[in-house]
Structures are given as C-alpha cells and as structure tokens.
C-alpha cells in the first residue's frame, strides 16, 4: 500500500490540475460562504424573506454539506483528467509491463479518491467554522458534525467513483467530463422522468445526492428527499460496488 501511495505521490506532485482544481474548490467554498453569511434577505418562490427565517443556523452543517455537494463535479473532472492522462500517455502500459498489478492501478486511484474526499470534507468543516464566525445570527451548535461529515465524505467518494468509472470506459478527458456533466444535468433527470418512481430512486446520482437531503426543501415545507438516509446509504454501497466492478472489468480485460 505504501508503494502504491509513493507511486501516486510521484505522479501527482508535478500535475498542475491536481493542485489547481482542489484550490479552486477551496476558494469558491470560502467565497460563497463569505457572501452568503453577509446576506440579510434571500429570494424564495419570488418573495424576499429574511435569511434567518429560511436558513435556520442550527442546521448550518446540513446546509454546508448539502451546498458543497455541488462542487463534487470539480473532483469528478479531476479524476477523469488523471485517468485520461495516464491512459493516453501509455502510463498504464508502462506500469503493467514494469510489474505493477492491474488491480494496483485501481487501488492507486481509490487511494487518491480517498484523499480528495477527505480534503473536500476538511474544507467543508473549515468553511463551517469560519461561517459560524461571520454569520449574521448566532449559531447555537457548532460542535463537530460527525454524521454529516461522514456522509459528505462518502458522497464525495461515490461521486468521484462515478467519474472514475466514466473516465476509464470513455478514456478521453474532454468527452468524459462533458458526458458526465450532460448526464448529471440532463440525462438522469430525463431518464428519471420516464421511469416509475421506485426505479428512478435507484438512479446513481439521485441516490448519492440523497445521502445529504436538501435542507431548503425541508425548511420551506416542501418535504425532504424521497428516500431516507439509511436507504441512500445502502443503495450508495450497491452503486459503489457496481461502479468499482465496472471499472475493474475494463482495467482487467483491456489491452494496454
């Protein structure tokens, strides 16, 4: 495991996108919350209402983790770039012919995914504590949100796994990123529209998103996410295994 980590470290240390994209994520998160916590009013269903009435700050961690979920796509793009670069430049061929096991190619990526998920979780926590300091209202509960942090970590990992599998199968960086974004923005909602609810609730991004239910819907009285967190956890585990299996299938059988 240490050998694989060293290999990944040597690969990533000189890769600019690996430092730039997480940096953009951190800056965007900090900027957003700096702006958000200075707002007095917010627009909801066409009406301007005081932010305190909507954003019940005892739920600050819930809001934070839910909002930060939109930035998972930065890490999806990063993992697709990493995979595409390595495949295009024949790195996998070189690694395997030098004696790296094919499964280690994936193990390395899973370790990187773990690091990226930890990093994004750490940024969420940092921003949460900073937001508490800048918020226009008192935040009663700023204790470490273990459950939400764990769910956020898992959600980040699942999203990046989705990107990893797409990257491995599509092999091309630009096409991979474009197709994943298209699927997330239009593909899955469209597919879901034509499917019965029971099946729609199994669609992968829908399941991953349900790990942290939409707090705004709750607060404006429009209900919560369709499936419970427990169900989302189980289904995420199924998807994680399925996506990991698909990635392995391709890596194991492909001619490098």
């Amino acid at each position: 495991m240490r050998r694989i980590l060293t290999i990944e470290y040597n690969k990533l240390i000189g890769y600019r996108a690996f430092w730039v994209l997480p940096g953009i994520y951190a800056i965007l998160m900090l900027l957003f919350f700096r702006i958000f916590t200075r707002l007095d009013m917010i627009q909801v269903n066409g009406e301007r209402v005081p932010i305190e009435s909507i954003l019940r700050m005892e739920k600050v961690w819930h809001y934070l983790t839910w909002f930060a979920g939109f930035f998972h796509y930065l890490f999806i793009a990063l993992i697709i770039l990493l995979i595409g670069n390595e495949m295009r430049n024949g790195f996998w061929r070189m690694a395997v012919t030098s004696g790296l096991r094919r499964v280690d190619l994936l193990t390395g990526k899973w370790l990187v995914m773990g690091i990226l998920s930890l990093f994004s979780t750490a940024i969420v926590l940092l921003v949460g504590y900073l937001a508490a300091g800048f918020a226009p209202v008192d935040i009663p509960d700023t204790a470490f949100p273990l459950q939400l942090a764990t769910l956020f970590f898992l959600q980040a990992f699942c999203y990046i796994q989705f990107g990893l599998t797409a990257g491995i199968w599509l092999e091309r960086t630009g096409l991979g990123i474009l197709l994943v974004l298209l699927y997330a923005m239009a593909g899955e909602p469209l597919i879901g529209y034509f499917l019965p609810t029971a099946i729609k609730e199994w669609l992968p991004l829908n399941v991953f998103a349900s790990l942290i239910p939409n707090p705004v819907l709750e607060d404006v009285g429009l209900g919560t996410s369709a499936i419970t967190t427990g169900l989302a956890l189980t289904r995420s585990a199924v998807w994680l295994a399925l996506l990991g299996g698909l990635a392995w299938l391709k890596v194991r059988n492909t001619d490098l």
Binding site: R3, I7, N10, K11, N89, R93, S98, G99
Partner: peptide, 20 residues
C-alpha cells in the same frame, strides 16, 4: 510511455517504485 508533465528523473522514480 511516460507522464509528459513530469521530469525524466521523476518518471524514472515511478518506474523504480513499481519495480521495487
């Protein structure tokens, strides 16, 4: 087959890591 954004030496370090 090497990673283009790394130095020659860094690429060899990766090969050395793989081969142990």
């Amino acid at each position: 087959n090497f990673l283009p954004y790394l130095t020659g030496e860094r690429n060899l370090k990766i090969v050395a890591d793989i081969r142990g």
